[in-house]
Simulated scan of single mutants.
Amino acid sequence: MEENIQTLDRLYKDHHGVVVNVIGYDRIGQRVIYRRTGYEWECAAPLIIFRARFRRIDK
Rank of each mutant, 00 (worst) to 15 (best):
52 A>L: 10
50 F>S: 00
38 G>W: 03
27 R>Y: 14
11 L>E: 02
42 E>C: 07
43 C>E: 11
58 D>S: 11
7 T>K: 14
31 R>K: 15
15 H>V: 04
29 G>P: 05
54 F>G: 02
5 I>G: 03
2 E>V: 10
20 V>F: 03
4 N>V: 08
1 M>S: 13
25 Y>E: 03
14 D>C: 00
23 I>E: 04
29 G>N: 11
7 T>L: 10
11 L>G: 01
3 E>P: 06
50 F>A: 01
39 Y>L: 06
18 V>K: 13
31 R>P: 07
15 H>S: 15
33 I>T: 01
21 N>E: 05
51 R>G: 08
25 Y>R: 00
17 G>E: 00
48 I>N: 12
16 H>A: 11
20 V>A: 00
35 R>Q: 11
36 R>S: 04
43 C>A: 12
32 V>P: 01
35 R>C: 07
16 H>L: 11
9 D>R: 09
10 R>W: 11
3 E>W: 10
50 F>D: 00
14 D>Y: 00
31 R>T: 11
5 I>F: 04
26 D>L: 09
54 F>T: 02
58 D>R: 14
12 Y>V: 00
17 G>I: 01
45 A>K: 14
39 Y>S: 05
28 I>N: 15
53 R>P: 02
4 N>I: 06
28 I>V: 15
4 N>C: 04
22 V>Q: 05
33 I>W: 03
47 L>I: 11
26 D>T: 07
46 P>Q: 13
58 D>Q: 11
31 R>H: 15
41 W>S: 12
46 P>C: 09
3 E>L: 09
6 Q>L: 12
46 P>I: 14
48 I>E: 13
58 D>L: 11
59 K>D: 09
41 W>A: 12
8 L>A: 02
13 K>D: 02
50 F>C: 04
56 R>V: 06
19 V>Y: 09
44 A>F: 14
38 G>D: 05
22 V>C: 02
56 R>Q: 12
31 R>C: 10
41 W>G: 08
13 K>H: 07
35 R>I: 10
13 K>A: 08
37 T>R: 15
42 E>Y: 13
38 G>R: 05
18 V>W: 05
6 Q>G: 04
53 R>M: 10
59 K>M: 08
13 K>W: 06
22 V>S: 01
15 H>I: 09
47 L>Y: 15
29 G>V: 07
1 M>A: 12
10 R>S: 05
47 L>D: 05
16 H>E: 12
32 V>L: 01
28 I>H: 15
37 T>I: 10
4 N>P: 02
15 H>L: 09
19 V>N: 08
25 Y>V: 00
57 I>D: 00
20 V>R: 00
48 I>P: 08
24 G>S: 03
18 V>T: 14
11 L>S: 02
57 I>F: 08
51 R>T: 06
3 E>A: 08
54 F>N: 01
40 E>N: 14
48 I>F: 15
38 G>M: 06
14 D>Q: 05
25 Y>W: 08
40 E>S: 13
35 R>L: 08
3 E>M: 07
22 V>Y: 02
36 R>Y: 09
23 I>S: 04
9 D>Y: 13
50 F>Y: 07
